[in-house]
Computed example of a mutant assay.
Amino acid sequence: MPRYAKSRVLVLFDIDGTLLSRSGPHHRQVLEEAIWQVAGVRSTTDGIPVQGMLDGDILQCMLRQAGAAEAAPELMLAIMKKAQALYVRRCPDLREKVCPGAPQLLERLAAEGVVVGLVTGNLSRIGWRKMTQAGLRPHIRYGAFAEQGATRAELAGLALAEARRREWLEAPTVATLIGDHPNDILAARANGLRSVAVGTGVVP
């Protein structure tokens, strides 16, 4: 990890609907295939309001919807691992899916030494692969992902704590969470972060 100068500004981004308008069907497809390959259950995301949800919660909903029992922690970890491996191999080029202005904003923040991270419901390898395929990875320092917490609010708290633990921040700090879903706003409020809501997702 390179050494960074301390900053008084932290900006955390959601991915889907915030940095990317849409990333195609591949994410949903690998969740479905991972459940089939690992648990032997045919399932789908149809009818599940996946926007604003964590991938782990989506997987559990898919299992329940298919009539299966809730996955034990060991099985859930195996499903998550399989889904990430599948996605890394299948994720297409996403540069055309980047929201207007997002690359320029990330470049400016990074150039000014702002600490930039992710708070996303994506599993870690899926989230990072999206950022790589979208051409945004060089501007993002770190992230908090679905497998690291039970709620989006917990992930936002982890991201804030990690930046402090690494001594990237100095007081007084202005910390902001940018997202397209009410869950992003609630996560910001739960951690005392400033919230910026964007209209690029599915929520009006």
Rank of each mutant, 00 (worst) to 15 (best):
Y87H: 05
M131R: 08
E70A: 13
Q104W: 04
L75A: 11
A66K: 00
L75H: 06
N122A: 01
C99W: 08
V119C: 02
C91D: 05
A102H: 00
L63N: 01
A144G: 14
V116T: 13
L77F: 08
K97D: 12
A66Y: 07
A110Y: 06
I58K: 00
Q104S: 11
D57K: 10
R89H: 09
G56T: 15
K130S: 10
Q84S: 15
Q60D: 13
V88R: 07
A144C: 11
C99T: 14
L106R: 06
L118C: 04
G56F: 00
R64F: 14
V98C: 03
I79S: 03
A111G: 14
A72N: 07
R90D: 09
L63T: 08
V98I: 09
A110G: 03
K97N: 10
L109S: 11
Y142N: 03
L105A: 08
V119H: 08
A111V: 02
L123W: 12
V88T: 11
A72V: 01
A78R: 09
K97L: 03
A72I: 04
L106F: 06
V115T: 12
V115M: 05
Q60V: 05
A110D: 12
I58Y: 04
A71G: 12
R129F: 05
P100Y: 05
L86T: 01
L94G: 03
Q65R: 15
S124P: 00
R64Q: 11
R125I: 03
T132K: 14
P103I: 09
G101R: 07
L75Y: 05
E70R: 13
M62Q: 11
G101S: 02
E112Y: 01
G67D: 03
L59S: 00
Q84E: 15
E96Q: 15
S124A: 07
A71P: 09
C99A: 05
A110L: 09
I58N: 14
E70Q: 14
C61Y: 11
M62A: 04
C99Q: 13
E107Q: 14
Q60G: 08
V114R: 12
L136I: 07
E70I: 10
M62W: 00
V119S: 14
I58T: 05
T120G: 03
P103W: 02
I79D: 09
L106V: 07
L86N: 03
A85I: 04
K130M: 12
P73Y: 07
W128C: 07
S124C: 03
G101F: 03
A69M: 09
S124G: 08
R129C: 15
D57I: 14
S124Y: 02
N122D: 00
R64D: 11
Y142F: 15
H139N: 04
L94T: 03
A102I: 14
R141D: 14
M131G: 07
G135V: 06
E96N: 15
M131K: 00
V116S: 06
